Computed example of a mutant assay.
Amino acid sequence: MKKLFGLSLLILIVVLSGCGSSSGESGGDGEEPLKIIAAHNQTDPENPYQDGLLAFKESVEEQSGGDIEVEVHAGTLGTSETELVEKLQTGAADVVLVSPGFMTSSGIDQVDLFAFPYLFNSYDHWEKTVQGEVGDEMAQIIKEESDNDFRMLGYWTAGVRHYYGDEPLQQMSDIDGKKMRTQTSGVVADFWKQTGAVPTSVAWGELYQALQQDVVDAAENAYPYFVQQDHHKTPNGKFITETGHDYTTRFLLTSGDLYDGLTDEQKEIIEEASKASVEAEWESLHSQEEEYKQQAIEEGAEVNQIDRQPFIDLAKPLQDKAAEEIGVTNLLEKIREIGESTEE
């Protein structure tokens, strides 16, 4: 009995000594600092994602006085969003950046709203949406639909997406029959099919070769991303038509369990750092959009404008149908109301 009691006491001491080592208790009083792993999927460190996470790191470490350390990974934990979210769920990453498209593959269909073509008419429209009531409602949807696996920290952008291909678009019919690298399912694919394009799946890392070798005739993305990859130097990427079909949304996420385990002070630090990251990422993106547009032109790309109204008219009924299917008609109407106010 004495041996059994002694063993039980030893186990109890070990268990109690382990308490207080969770993320919410780390840092300060000589303890090891809380370490946060923050990651995005872009391998080039010269991009807005990196700038945003570095701002997050700087704010967290300054506010905490070194009690919280942030380690930023640019593509080193995974170049696909699926990899990053898997690491978030297993605890190998604490803060990650993902797109609405990934979230829908996780079963949260409502976030596909932010991927609707021509949902926004300007950055002002987009910013007022994500920073207001609609953004708050979407953050709550993500928390509830994921059973608190994911907690929203902030809305980032990946710029305004435009068409680029083997010839300029003067009118919508010019895209008819073109093999276009874009999503091959969902409302985005439906939209491009309606224009006459043939949505084609090509991995981002393979797109330069696909444009070079006529695997696809065209693609669509924002200047900072496709110019960095030299897509504009290929025969099938040289002609850029500013369709402006998507003011993109990206979600800065953390684990709900991790967040709930933080102290109130640590939560405040993370939230303030998230705001700083949003401001830094937006500023970097806006600056780089103009910078890379000019670089593309200087390197031989041709840029033209097009009447967007036929595209917008095509997109609206698709928006209505998709919004009803995923249960976000009320949010769609709120976004449209915000858009009307920004146009006044």
Score class of each variant (00 low, 15 high):
8 S>E: 10
11 I>K: 11
13 I>W: 11
13 I>E: 06
15 V>Q: 08
16 L>G: 13
16 L>M: 08
20 G>H: 00
25 E>S: 08
27 G>H: 01
29 D>G: 07
30 G>W: 08
35 K>N: 04
38 A>H: 07
42 Q>L: 15
48 P>W: 08
50 Q>H: 15
51 D>Q: 04
62 E>F: 00
63 Q>F: 07
65 G>N: 05
68 I>K: 00
73 H>M: 08
74 A>V: 00
78 G>W: 09
79 T>W: 11
80 S>I: 14
80 S>K: 03
82 T>N: 10
82 T>H: 07
84 L>A: 04
85 V>D: 00
93 A>N: 10
95 V>K: 10
96 V>M: 04
97 L>R: 05
102 F>S: 00
106 S>W: 01
109 D>Y: 04
109 D>V: 09
111 V>C: 00
113 L>N: 01
116 F>R: 07
117 P>V: 10
122 S>Y: 03
127 E>C: 05
131 Q>F: 08
131 Q>L: 07
137 E>I: 05
143 K>R: 09
148 N>F: 10
148 N>A: 15
151 R>V: 03
156 W>C: 13
157 T>N: 14
159 G>P: 01
160 V>H: 06
173 S>E: 13
176 D>C: 01
176 D>P: 02
178 K>H: 14
187 V>H: 00
187 V>I: 12
188 V>S: 11
189 A>I: 03
190 D>C: 12
190 D>I: 09
191 F>D: 05
194 Q>W: 00
195 T>G: 03
196 G>I: 06
198 V>Q: 07
199 P>E: 11
200 T>C: 06
202 V>P: 01
209 Q>T: 13
209 Q>A: 15
216 V>I: 11
216 V>M: 07
218 A>T: 11
220 E>V: 04
226 F>R: 09
228 Q>S: 15
228 Q>L: 14
228 Q>G: 10
229 Q>E: 13
230 D>L: 01
238 K>W: 06
244 G>M: 12
246 D>I: 02
248 T>S: 15
251 F>S: 14
252 L>D: 15
259 Y>H: 15
261 G>M: 10
264 D>F: 10
266 Q>C: 13
267 K>V: 05
268 E>W: 03
270 I>T: 13
271 E>D: 15
276 A>C: 02
277 S>N: 08
286 H>Q: 05
286 H>T: 06
287 S>N: 05
291 E>C: 07
297 I>L: 06
298 E>G: 09
301 A>R: 08
306 I>T: 10
306 I>K: 05
312 I>Q: 03
313 D>V: 08
318 L>F: 03
320 D>H: 07
320 D>P: 02
320 D>C: 02
320 D>S: 14
323 A>R: 14
323 A>H: 09
326 I>K: 04
329 T>D: 08
329 T>G: 04
338 I>R: 13
339 G>D: 01
341 S>H: 12
342 T>Q: 15
